[in-house]
Nucleic acid binder design. Sequence first.
DNA 1: AAACAAGTTTACGTTAACGTAAAGCTGCGA
DNA 2: TCGCAGCTTTACGTTAACGTAAACTTGTTT
Lengths: 134, 134
Amino acid sequence: MSKTYSISELASEFDVTTRSIRFYEDQELLHPSRRGQTRIYSSKDRVRLKLTLRGKRLGFSLAEIRELFELWDETRSGSEKQLHLMLSKISERKAALEQQMKDITMVQLELESAEIRCRQALEELNEKHPATSK
Amino acid sequence: MSKTYSISELASEFDVTTRSIRFYEDQELLHPSRRGQTRIYSSKDRVRLKLTLRGKRLGFSLAEIRELFELWDETRSGSEKQLHLMLSKISERKAALEQQMKDITMVQLELESAEIRCRQALEELNEKHPATSK
DNA sequence: AAACAAGTTTACGTTAACGTAAAGCTGCGA
DNA sequence: TCGCAGCTTTACGTTAACGTAAACTTGTTT
């Protein structure tokens, strides 16, 4: 009997609304079981939620995330065709992530130089209008 | 007289629609001048478009990108208060980017192991059902 | 028994970022 | 002068990812 979670437990742990979690289920990203009408989330569901949120932070749509989940699940029983499809999807994603890495590096550089420019402007201000002792 | 661009030149260079470019102007991300009623884009506009698209790939909203542009412009003539605000915004962005870097690294690892699992499944298939000579 | 907390379904509303006509000006090569 | 390519404005439509409200069940605390 591995651990299970209620919807509000997951909601507060990952700081999302229960509405979102139910929506993700609607989009077939999560598949909680039920006790009566109440949803019960397994640790697999928890992992999926975590992955979903991570994917979102990276700009993936829910549809894309779902696609990756499905491909992953099909891998075990996949035909050769399916497996090759999966591999190509994977390398697709890899390329996108590498592009994103580059983008981040560029923006970080720009932020660096912006910060320097900012600090210089501050210094110039302090020369003309020096600080009140202290 | 530095170089200028038409809207369709920029559109094809960056592979976006003219509709998007006009929309970005509407959101005050670009400020092209006019000759008659026709828009003329400076190289500054071009840079801004490039930065905009990069920001989008990183999941920034147009409003956020605009905010950064405005802060950047205000830096030259900024008061001490403005400059400190800018610095805090910058470090905010930096933190977000670092989080994204971590996310990307995690997903890359997951994709790696998915790829390995995929290749193993393929090998197992080929053992049971070996390739037709060649 | 009453009320409260936590869950549920159903369904309409909202925002961002464009897409997609429709209708009109403008220079210019045949 | 015609027509076309490229630009313009205006405006309504669309999709994703939820927000928000209403009305209901279910368990448990007072």
